[in-house]
Design a protein around this nucleic acid. Structure first.
Lengths: 344, 344
DNA sequence: CACCCGTATGTAAGCGCTTACATTACCAAG
DNA sequence: CTTGGTAATGTAAGCGCTTACATACGGGTG
């Protein structure tokens, strides 16, 4: 007879435990564990008895107990600023999908909804084996350091820093190509809209914009500082309409900015790309619905998320962190807002 | 002297534990726990010693051990089909934000990326205290039953079923209002595009469409079956263009459908709303960027997510499940695709 | 028929925390 | 000086699993 576990008296009324299942099936808890984990062979008859008991008792194992015993959580943490727009959502989907394949749960933390993100991350570290953090989410450096000592961390769309791996989409070269494309339409007063200091990805896009000018021996203007929001786009468009700024081309740090500027301008009677070319970054859904279609850059966001999950898993497995950022290629999506003729 | 824990020899090299911290600070593990949980009073000097030790050792508690000891996970599960489009993302943000306020972690499962969603949910149940499931994600009924016995479950955008609570946005009345609005523009061959059987929310929208016709003594057509995707929208638009179907108004089950139909039609030279009025549902970002602006219905998606998290928390707290679905009000967003004149 | 081995199962020692209860130290009051 | 109360800390018993190791049970062999 299996040993009577102290808790098993009340087990029937509260949740079932491995003890109550064992009792019910007339086997030991080790056997129950074995059929549930499927690691060792169990006689078919025994297996059935256990499965039946599980079913009858509605047994749901306590993950925490397993985690404690096996000494890892089988979960990855993901820290994102927020989820508006397709970018983060796609990233998350890629991450989740790969994590699922690797049998890892994903616990998500959105920092924009937190007042104390340091606490949130500290608490997250408590229940996962590794953490992926989106680059522009400003993590207190010391926190990262603490984490690094114990749990693998990878930065998404950021840069590697001592011991913390990074994965990113290529930005600089595609930005250079995109800006070059616009300049080659003959535009000479192109402006970059976005804040290069808001994160490494935007900075690289700006660098590309600079490089394209340099390539052609042209002078580039300072960036027009704006956050990646419709509001900032509309505001800038107003300034353009008011004549405060002059431009015949706009290279926006992302599509939301580009789209809000474009429609504001159009509603005021301006012709895009006739009067002014506008390009964005991200290739959001709207980019192909607006007229003219928005020329932009498609990033392999889904793959980026998957890659992050992958790396996390391998780091947990003991692989040493890479010291260089892994770059995923991006792709220029040329529509007509840049000045290209419609294909029809 | 604190008792020597078996693990503490290797503790220094692997992750620090509460034992190594206690040793290092020269106190008992109980005291360490007390300063970290902040429940009981600890002498200031002691507290400092402990905090210092934590810092020096880079101690990160093991969540699983705490969960096991306190007998709950302090985490909520959320099961969503996917995250494309703003709907689910917004829902998730609302859920996450409220969960954060309640000090609950959120572990996310996306079912579209899984081959075996039953297994995914079963596994999820293992590590959370309660689960919110999006209604149309087809959960095997028996699984729900198993869960229900042990962990609170709430269905989002679904209907309550024995013991499982539901939260939803109002659909029927707003659909009736929306359809009525279109009909009152004089349209008489209005079609509903979407599959009423794909979930309770769509069904209710169709019911509203029916009701609006009934209110006016009009006959309503059968629904045009289509999934909520751009592809199905485009396909239907082609059939319209080919003359296979006739209509002077389209009430689409969501915005994606509406938008893809609208642009396909426009690109083929049709006038919206002149030739045909089109309305959607959700008020996605694109809805206000396209011309004509898409008339649609805004749902309090964020609030819906928050409500789900709230309910989960209260159910975990022992409150009995409600037997009626909680409805959040929606709001008609009238733009011009329905036939209304532009406001300018 | 004794022996050895492989297979199926049981026993029990943790995993790293929380917390009820016990202990100690100290001080005020009797 | 004894006693009782209070505040601070320590002791130890779990929480529900996994898994190394021990045990039991049956055959083949020689």
């Amino acid at each position: 007879m299996a040993k009577q576990h102290p808790a098993s008296a009340e087990a029937r009324s509260a949740g079932a435990t491995i003890y109550s299942v064992a009792d019910h099936a007339g086997v030991s808890i080790a056997t129950v564990s074995r059929v549930l984990q499927g690691a060792t062979v169990v006689a078919e008859a025994t297996r059935q008895k256990v499965l039946t008991a599980v079913e009858e008792l509605g047994y749901v194992p306590t993950g925490a107990a397993r985690s404690l015993a096996v000494r890892h959580h089988e979960a990855h943490g993901l820290v994102l600023p927020e989820l508006s727009g397709p970018y983060y959502a796609e990233l998350l989907m890629g991450f989740e999908a790969r994590a699922a394949e690797l049998a890892q749960s994903v616990v998500l933390v959105l920092t924009n909804s937190r007042t104390d993100m340091a606490a949130a991350v500290r608490q997250l570290a408590t229940r996962v084996d590794a953490i992926a953090v989106f680059g522009s989410a400003a993590i207190p450096a010391d926190l990262v350091r603490v984490l690094r000592a114990k749990k693998p961390v990878v930065v998404i769309a950021g840069e590697p820093q001592d011991g913390i791996e990074a994965v990113a989409a290529e930005n600089l070269e595609s930005a250079r190509e995109l800006a070059g494309h616009v300049l080659d339409h003959g535009r000479r007063r192109a402006l970059f809209v976005g804040d290069p200091d808001s994160g490494p990805d935007i900075r690289n896009r700006y660098e590309g914009y600079l490089a394209a000018h340099r390539d052609r021996g042209l002078d580039a203007a300072d960036p027009v500082l704006a956050r990646l929001s419709e509001a900032d786009g509309t505001a800038f468009a107003q300034r353009l309409l008011a004549g405060e700024r002059e431009a015949d081309a706009l290279m926006c740090a992302n599509d939301e900015l580009a789209l809000s500027i474009m429609t504001t301008l159009q509603d005021a009677g301006r012709d895009v790309p006739g009067d002014i070319a506008i390009v964005g970054w991200d290739d959001v859904m709207t980019a192909r619905y607006v007229r003219p279609g928005l020329t932009t850059v498609r990033q392999p966001v889904h793959e980026l998320g998957a890659l992050a999950a992958d790396r996390l898993h391998e780091l947990v497995g003991g692989e040493p962190p890479r010291t260089y950022a892994q770059m995923l290629p991006t792709r220029l999506v040329v529509r007509t807002s840049c000045g290209c003729p419609p294909v029809t």
